[in-house]
Amino acid sequence: MPWACQNDGMVSLLADSLSKSYSTPDSELDVLVDVSLSLAASENLAILGPSGSGKSTLLAILGTLDQPSSGTLKIGDADPFQLPEPQLAEFRSRQIGFIFQDHHLLPQCTVLENVLVPFLASGSAGAVEIDEATQLIGRVGLADRLLHRPAQLSGGEKQRVAIARALVRKPILVLADEPTGNLDSRTAEEVSRLLLELQVEQESMLVAVTHSQQLADSMQRRLHLDNGQLVEHV
């Protein structure tokens, strides 16, 4: 398949001059303006900025959930926006993991079933997938919560499940939108440490948009997005 990528240390993310604008009755609203960034395998990056600065829009484009008005994106060997929609959906399912501020767990499903959700996009989960998911749930410290449902979990535990779900297919890119935003400071620190440990172990790339200086300071690189433009964070 033309979009297949391997996590072999050569995988990279390259966004070049991404812009996003929306038409309004009176003018064009520029949300992103010539945003460029690159990442190598195992590298992580925090993007900071005020509310409304375009952070979530940028994350949506990097995650191929939205298309830029102009500019190009390359993830590994793939130019995802050149793929037909069915192949793009499969690429996204296999190669990109998402973590949100609100965990978005399915309330009727167990921890194990929630972590297995990414496999459902391409069929079903077999014995190998279930074993891998079970091991990853243990790795995030929830081996004794395997059959619990989200209502039986604390906020930190729910976010650990969300991390396991994002990483279960060993994606080459993990995108996190305020992953510690709903957690107290102690739990946020624990979740941040776990996320970074697993990301490095899997040699994936991680981009996190955050208001948390604590999370940003724990990451290798920091950029600042303001008025749609990305600059080095000082």
Rank of each mutant, 00 (worst) to 15 (best):
L198H: 11
A4Q: 15
S42N: 13
K55V: 08
G123E: 08
L120I: 10
I130V: 15
C109L: 15
W3C: 14
E43S: 13
L65Y: 13
G63N: 11
D177Q: 06
R92K: 10
G97P: 01
I75L: 15
V191S: 11
C109F: 15
S36Q: 01
V11E: 01
L206G: 06
A46I: 04
L167M: 14
L215V: 06
V168D: 04
L120E: 15
L13M: 02
T57P: 04
T64W: 00
S154Y: 09
S212G: 08
N227G: 15
A176Q: 11
S17W: 02
L112F: 00
T187A: 02
F98S: 00
P25Y: 05
Q87P: 04
Q220A: 15
A164W: 06
K158P: 05
S185Y: 04
R169Y: 03
H104D: 14
E113W: 11
I99M: 01
P2N: 15
N114L: 03
L29I: 09
D226T: 06
S192C: 03
L206T: 05
S212L: 00
L88I: 05
Q214A: 14
K170A: 12
N114G: 02
V168I: 12
S204G: 12
A166P: 10
S21P: 06
L175M: 08
G76V: 04
K20G: 07
H211R: 11
D8W: 07
P179H: 08
S154M: 07
F81K: 07
